[in-house]
Amino acid sequence: MRNAYRILAGIICVEVVIQAMAVVFAVAGLGKYITDGNVVDKAALESEDLEFTGVVGFMVHGINGMMIIPLLGVALLVISFFAKVPGGVKWAGIVLGSIVVQVTAGLLGHDAPYIGLIHGLNAFILFGSAMNAARLARTADAGAASSPVAA
């Protein structure tokens, strides 16, 4: 179970990196689309015909952020109760809490762009929390491997 905990925490770290890559790909593509003389307005955003290099980044960012990462966070918390990682439940809770903040800030940022600052900062908090959770599990594995087995 410790391995599952460590792997899930690591996957969450990778997902945060994918999120950053996807949104930058999308924004850079949108910038090039506009630089090439195209116009983006409310009608274009609501249209299913808006096509530019990088548009898939917005979809990846949305699906990962709204479905995949929250599911991984819940799974990490559930597994944390069985993994016997010292501090594991606490750190899984912190990871899940920062995921909730991230999703909320992402949704509210559409109406209040300054909340995007919280969304960006919290991504680092989420990454660091998940990395710490993975480190704790790795340390617990090393400690279990080096401790003598009672006969």
Rank of each mutant, 00 (worst) to 15 (best):
residue 2 R to L: 12
residue 6 R to T: 10
residue 9 A to F: 07
residue 9 A to R: 03
residue 10 G to V: 08
residue 16 V to H: 01
residue 20 A to E: 09
residue 22 A to S: 03
residue 26 A to H: 02
residue 28 A to P: 03
residue 29 G to T: 06
residue 29 G to R: 05
residue 30 L to P: 05
residue 31 G to I: 02
residue 31 G to T: 08
residue 35 T to C: 08
residue 36 D to T: 07
residue 38 N to K: 01
residue 38 N to I: 00
residue 38 N to P: 01
residue 44 A to H: 05
residue 47 S to H: 01
residue 50 L to H: 00
residue 52 F to E: 01
residue 54 G to D: 01
residue 54 G to Y: 01
residue 55 V to M: 07
residue 56 V to D: 15
residue 56 V to I: 09
residue 60 V to L: 12
residue 65 G to T: 00
residue 67 M to V: 10
residue 67 M to E: 12
residue 67 M to R: 03
residue 69 I to S: 03
residue 71 L to F: 06
residue 72 L to I: 10
residue 73 G to A: 04
residue 75 A to I: 14
residue 76 L to R: 02
residue 76 L to M: 03
residue 80 S to Q: 02
residue 82 F to C: 13
residue 83 A to Y: 08
residue 84 K to I: 02
residue 95 V to I: 06
residue 99 I to Y: 03
residue 100 V to L: 06
residue 101 V to S: 09
residue 105 A to Q: 15
residue 105 A to H: 06
residue 106 G to F: 04
residue 106 G to M: 04
residue 107 L to C: 14
residue 107 L to N: 12
residue 108 L to W: 15
residue 109 G to E: 00
residue 111 D to P: 07
residue 112 A to E: 12
residue 114 Y to L: 13
residue 115 I to E: 07
residue 117 L to W: 11
residue 119 H to C: 01
residue 120 G to C: 02
residue 122 N to Y: 06
residue 123 A to G: 08
residue 124 F to G: 11
residue 125 I to K: 04
residue 129 S to H: 04
residue 132 N to A: 08
residue 133 A to F: 13
residue 136 L to W: 01
residue 139 T to Y: 15
residue 139 T to E: 12
